[in-house]
């Protein structure tokens, strides 16, 4: 028993140790990595992933972290790209004013969230399947809007999100930071958030405590879709327009970031700040590997292995503790 506890204690330090070692190594190999410029760059690249990961974190916190029966929303990146496509199409091809284009995009994203909420809460579909299906449908509609073509966007607000600075920091980074704070406060510092957490932690326990779990789960999908809408602006800024196919990478990084963040949280649970941290770490890893000139054919492999070690060791530390 004592041996098991000792191993468990050791395992708890694996995620931190792996990443610490990794960054020490990268820092030695690529001395430019930890200059303010590069750090700002890494944060900037993480912005769209941070924003959608906040949404996924809300859904997982409220729905529970069982990948099949718990909460998951794979359609957030799809909501983001349909919103981005609508904004780009309206602003560039139809000359619509940005605020009106944003309103259309918001409507589209919220519709995606409402559809998910309906499928999961009312029809009682598995979130994994429901959101995967709605994601496929939304990507299809997006292709119809853009005709699978790239649309450039040069709107000054979008360009500001890309190049602008606020008190010496990149505008996008500041905005994503504020969003993280707002979502963190909502989920971890309010009654609403605690009851959402209770819903995800134990549906029956929450029901018995008089929490209307269905409402919480439905709202979580709306909050997630809202992050999809917000992310659309950063996606546009990052790509200086809407490019087809962006959702795939975003989806991958979102899921990775959110669960990687859980490995770093003291309770080994998905949290809002963990998701944001995870997104930043994933971006740092990407930039780090590119900076030291690792063979491009190997980067994915190494990244995947690292993340696997971290997430698996976190799973091992919580195993059997119920």
């Amino acid at each position: 028993m004592i041996a098991i506890q000792f191993v468990r204690k050791l395992l708890e330090w694996v995620p931190v140790a792996v990443f610490a070692l990794m960054f020490i190594f990268l820092g030695i190999e690529a001395p430019t990595l930890f200059t303010p410029f590069t750090i700002d760059l890494m944060l900037k690249q993480a912005v769209p992933t941070v924003v959608v990961s906040l949404g996924l974190a809300v859904v997982i916190i409220t729905g529970g972290d069982d990948v099949v029966s718990g909460g998951i929303d794979l359609s957030i990146p799809a909501a983001a790209i349909i919103a981005a496509a609508i904004i780009a199409d309206q602003v560039t091809n139809h000359g619509t004013a940005l605020p009106i284009a944003l309103a259309f995009a918001l409507l589209a994203a919220i519709t995606v969230g409402a559809l998910n909420a309906f499928l999961v809460v009312m029809i009682r579909m598995t979130p994994l399947l429901a959101t995967l299906a709605s994601s496929v449908a939304v990507v299809g509609i997006t292709k119809m809007i853009t005709q699978s073509k790239r649309i450039n966007v040069t709107d000054p607000f979008i360009v500001f999100l890309r190049d602008g600075t606020v008190i010496g920091l990149s505008a996008g980074v500041v905005a994503a930071g504020l969003l993280t704070l707002i979502y963190w406060f909502l989920m971890h510092q309010t009654r609403w958030g605690m009851q959402a957490q209770a819903t995800g932690g134990g549906r029956e326990a929450a029901d018995i405590s008089g929490i209307s779990t269905k409402r919480y789960q439905a709202i979580s999908f709306l909050l997630a879709a809202f992050t999809g809408f917000l992310a659309s602006m950063f996606v546009l800024a990052r790509g200086s327009g809407s490019s087809p196919g962006t959702e795939e990478n975003l989806l991958l990084e979102m899921v990775l970031a959110t669960f990687l963040g859980a490995a770093f949280s003291p309770r080994r649970k998905v949290t809002v700040w963990g998701a944001a941290l995870g997104a930043v770490l994933v971006a740092m890893l990407s930039v780090g590997f590119k900076s030291i000139g690792v063979n491009v054919f190997w980067t994915g492999c190494i990244k995947g292995a690292l993340i696997l070690i971290v997430v698996a060791s976190a799973a091992a530390t919580t195993r059997g503790r119920y």
Binding site: R150, V235, R238, G239, S243, G245, T246, E248, N249, K290, S291, G293, N295, V296, F297, T299, G300
Partner: peptide
């Protein structure tokens, strides 16, 4: 110093 976009323009 090689970098690969993985067929993703962004």
């Amino acid at each position: 110093v090689p970098v690969d976009g993985g067929r993703d323009n962004q």
